[in-house]
């Protein structure tokens, strides 16, 4: 899957599958990056909380169950 190409720090823990991205993934990624994608990302940009870092820091939950 495409993410393997961009993952610089992979800890090998519990991963014995080879981490080589097959050529076909490149084509798949290109295909995925059409105008359609831009449209949905533009829309999601509009609704994403504005300060990602602050938001992530403040999202603290207590355990449950």
């Amino acid at each position: 899957m495409a993410q393997e190409q961009k993952q610089p720090r992979k800890s090998g823990e519990e991963q014995d599958a080879t981490e080589v991205a097959p050529e076909s993934d490149v084509a798949e990624r290109k295909e995925a990056l059409d105008d359609d994608v831009d449209a949905i990302l533009d829309e999601i940009d509009d609704v994403l909380e504005s300060n990602a870092e602050d938001f992530v820091k403040s999202f603290i939950q207590k355990g449950g169950e």
Binding site: A2, Q3, K6, Q7, P8, R29, A32, L33, V37, D38, I40, L41, I44, L48, E49, A52, E53, F55, V56
Partner: peptide, 20 residues
């Protein structure tokens, strides 16, 4: 969705935006 953002904005997995 995450891959689309990574691809468009060149984000690493530790980027707060992906967590968001």
């Amino acid at each position: 969705l995450l891959e689309q953002y990574r691809s468009r904005d060149g984000l690493e997995w530790d980027d707060a935006k992906l967590q968001l």
